[in-house]
């Protein structure tokens, strides 16, 4: 079995699991962690391509995704803590005021 095909299919499965998690879970922190899972799936596909082609560019892009994920967590956690302090809950369905 081809290693690249296997890793790319696994990356698609992990991305789908993260996306379904963001859609169905109700806890804001769990939704954030599912987004991290989606980023990890993208890094896995980059690493698979980099290893297949033997070029370091995919590894560099994986590093840049690490930086973006760190920045995302640094800005998302204060927002979640602020919302949790206002409503005393982490349930996203109590923050549906924008739905109209």
């Amino acid at each position: 079995m081809d290693k690249l095909s296997f890793l790319l299919a696994a990356s698609g499965v992990l991305f789908t699991l993260g996306l379904v998690g963001v859609m169905v879970r109700r806890n804001a922190l769990i939704m954030l962690m599912c987004m991290e899972l989606m980023l990890n799936a993208v890094v896995l596909s980059l690493v698979a391509f980099a290893s297949h082609h033997g070029a370091p560019d995919g590894a560099v892009l994986a590093f840049l995704i690490f930086v973006v994920a760190t920045a995302e967590i640094a800005i998302a956690i204060p927002i979640v803590m602020l919302l949790a302090r206002q409503r005393q809950t982490l349930d996203v369905q109590s923050w549906d005021a924008l739905k109209g």
Binding site: L4, S5, F6, A9, G12, F15, T16, S45, S51, H52
Partner: peptide, 26 residues
């Protein structure tokens, strides 16, 4: 969401599998 995830996993898995098979060997 589970139905959409099932469709997406089929599409992504198939695309990934085909892309891996169509590229020249390592």
């Amino acid at each position: 969401a589970i139905a959409a995830g099932g469709v997406l996993v089929l599409v992504l898995g198939h695309l990934g599998w085909r892309a891996g098979a169509s590229l020249p060997p390592a």
